[in-house]
């Protein structure tokens, strides 16, 4: 078990190293950031000076070495636009994104798992077919369009939810959160709902597939032969077996949610990471993009790691290996 954990940790570091190379290379192709820092009427000499200060005049391997060294010390450079350390900017926006992502995840789990279990346990029923068709529509919807429709209906037409912003925040543990205020919740509902739809559909389909697989198993019938009720068998014996694949998907979806938060945050003017990212892309604010990418990569790798650990906890068969 310890050996396995160490092996996984080592893998994580290797992947993050590879990601840092890729991010670095990608950034080198993303236009010339020097024009972001110099005034429009800068002279050649001023530009060359700026280039030197930014380290852009060195060779690629040298630039990468500097990049890596800075990164390991937590120094990603300053944002060209905000003139603040890029890491601080990102960390400041992180809670807002985490809020909508976590709320979206919970929303999709709360809706998808029971519906998926139902559809998987009663595959022939009309309700199950309706659920499955609904989930297919969910996968087929462009999430940004759904967000717009929600804004149009709930904000423009009926005026029941605000269309943008985070609402009131309170400071908890040094950062500002919306989920601890009523107004914050009022603001968080629409963006999180928008974000959750795709994940909801996918989770639902995986849960159903897992459930259908499980209902065919002998141990389900054996449990019924012991006198356990149909519901008891489904939830007591089936659900946990069926949810094993769901855990993986849950992990992967968390990553997707962070990615799609860029779009949702743009629509709802939600001041999170995604909005910052899009703004930074428009302004070629390289350091911010780099921190974002590295942060997202780290989150991904850590989630995958946690999912694997969670697996061994859910499935005793893996624990022994």
């Amino acid at each position: 078990m310890l050996g396995y954990t160490l092996k996984r940790l080592l893998q994580m570091i290797v992947v993050l190293g590879a990601v840092s190379v890729i991010v670095f290379l990608m950034m080198s192709f993303t236009g010339d950031p020097v024009f972001m820092v110099v005034p429009i009427d800068a002279t050649e000499a001023e530009i060359a000076q700026a280039r030197r200060i930014l380290g852009l005049d060195r060779s690629m391997p040298e630039q990468y070495a500097i990049f890596l060294k800075g990164m390991l010390q937590g120094d990603f450079g300053r944002s060209y636009v905000f003139r603040e350390p890029a890491l601080d900017l990102i960390l400041e926006r992180l809670p807002a994104t985490l809020e909508i992502v976590v709320v979206a995840m919970l929303m999709s789990a709360v809706v998808a798992i029971p519906l998926g279990v139902y559809a998987g346990a009663n595959p022939g029923r009309t309700e199950s077919r309706a659920i499955m068709t609904g989930s297919l529509v969910g996968i087929s919807l462009p999430s940004f369009w759904v967000g717009m429709m929600l804004i149009f209906l709930f904000a423009v037409k009926w005026n029941v939810f605000p269309s943008s912003g985070r609402g009131d925040t309170v400071e908890v543990m040094g950062t500002r959160w919306s989920i601890f205020t009523a107004d914050g919740w009022h603001h968080i509902i629409l963006p999180s709902l928008t974000l959750s739809l795709g994940t909801m559909a996918i989770l639902l389909r995986i849960t159903r597939a897992g459930m259908m697989e499980v209902t065919r198993q002998d141990y389900m019938k054996f449990a019924r032969a012991k006198g356990v009720s149909r519901r008891g068998v489904l939830y007591g014996h089936g659900l946990r077996n069926a949810l094993i694949p769901v855990v993986t998907i849950f992990g992967l979806q968390l990553g997707d949610l962070i990615a799609f938060a860029t779009i949702t945050e743009t629509i709802f003017a939600w001041p999170g990471l995604g909005k910052l990212l899009i703004d930074s892309i428009y302004r070629a604010d390289r350091p911010v993009i780099v921190v974002y990418l590295m942060l997202v990569a780290t989150i991904f790798v850590v989630i995958n790691f946690l999912v694997d650990i969670l697996y061994t906890w859910i499935d005793p068969r893996i624990r022994v290996k």
């Binding site: 198993q217 002998d218 141990y219 019938k221 054996f222 449990a223 019924r224 032969a225 012991k226 006198g227 014996h237 946990r240 077996n241 859910i314 499935d315 005793p316 068969r317």
Partner: peptide
Amino acid sequence: RIRGREIAMVFQDPMTSLNPL
């Protein structure tokens, strides 16, 4: 109340009739 208490069943394949989890 009859299943398990009055009439019990033993299945063919012991590899699959117990819940692995």
